[in-house]
């Protein structure tokens, strides 16, 4: 009753909120198909900016560089971040724990200019040539903290008795982790990898500090173009990136939704089986023999 009275308010706020979030992106996409060079005036439908984008070698090189940095840094960040998550949730107390937690959470909110500058000065101090590897190391460092947060929030809800059961059945701690814990938390590790990957794909500021003359990432390229004004190619490029990411995110969410629905279905089925089991053993058996084996 109370909820219904509020609902006009809810619908309005949700509509306005999502409109605010999505209209700029939609306009960006729409105008990527604009024939006119003037980005804000509609001049008819065209895909010419896409073809000119693919012919722009500088963009393509930057895109390739970004992908390489993204894949390498996301992979290392996932490994290090998962270790960090295990330390936070499982290692108990050790000297320097507060410092460690600080080093995990601070990069999440640390202004990028500070992180970028400090990493650059370190690279200079140790005389490391700036380029692909410095960008990658910089990205590993800040995205491993995001990975640690994602994975540790999964680990705290992880039923530790599963690990204890594995120990009880003869596993060492090490093999219990690989045989039991890792397969179960794998979905959130995958999500963490994707997050690290997009963070790397997205980063302008830290990459600008950490890169050298030879290495330009896509955001750096976009930024240098955007500073000079609106470019229809940028709209086209943005559209491609948005579409790729959207497909990825939507697919992932549909897959998880399917999984939960499937789980619910099996639970209902199992409950029905229990009920049948109690009614009659013979019906129970016949039911199973006719039932296709459900398995994933």
């Amino acid at each position: 009753m109370n909820i219904n009275r509020f609902s006009w308010f809810n619908i309005t706020s949700l509509t306005l909120g999502f409109a605010f979030l999505y209209i700029p992106i939609l306009l960006l996409i729409v105008f990527s198909f604009n024939k006119s060079k003037l980005v804000t005036v509609w001049g008819g439908f065209s895909t010419k900016w896409y073809s000119s984008l693919f012919q722009n070698e500088a963009f393509m090189d930057a895109a390739l560089m970004t992908l390489k940095v993204g894949v390498v840094s996301a992979t290392f960040a996932t490994i290090l971040g998962t270790l960090a998550a295990l330390v936070i949730t499982r290692a108990g107390f050790f000297r320097g724990r507060t410092l460690f937690a600080g080093m995990i959470y601070a990069p999440l909110v640390m202004p990028e200019v500070i992180t970028g500058l400090s990493l650059l000065l370190l690279f200079v101090a140790i005389g490391w040539d700036r380029g692909f590897w410095t960008i990658t190391v910089a990205h590993i460092t800040f995205s491993m903290c995001y990975v640690a947060v994602v994975v540790s929030s999964r680990l705290v809800t992880f039923d530790e008795s599963l690990e204890e059961a594995a120990l009880d059945l003869g596993c060492t701690k090490f093999s219990a982790f690989f045989q039991v814990t890792l397969p179960i938390i794998a979905p959130s590790i995958a999500a963490a990898w994707l997050l690290a990957f997009t963070l790397s794909l997205d980063d302008l500021v830290i990459a600008s500090f950490a890169s050298g003359p030879g290495a330009t990432t896509l955001p750096m390229k976009i930024y240098s173009q955007v500073r000079l004004g609106l470019k229809p190619e940028i709209n086209a490029l943005s559209t491609i990136l948005i579409v790729i990411v959207s497909i990825g995110v939507i697919t992932a969410s549909i897959v998880t939704k399917r999984a939960t629905m499937k789980k619910r279905f099996y639970e209902q089925q199992a409950n029905a089986q229990t009920a049948l089991h109690r009614c009659s053993n013979s019906i129970f058996k016949r039911y199973y023999n006719n039932c296709p084996k459900g398995g994933t």
Binding site: K263, Y266, E267, Q269, A270, N271, Q273, T274, H277, K285, Y288, N289, K293, G294, G295, T296
Partner: peptide
């Protein structure tokens, strides 16, 4: 025996 290949979440509490 009939449940050997099922996953735990496909079983009832008693099973």
């Amino acid at each position: 025996e009939p449940f050997a290949n099922r996953k735990p979440q496909q079983l009832s509490g008693g099973q």
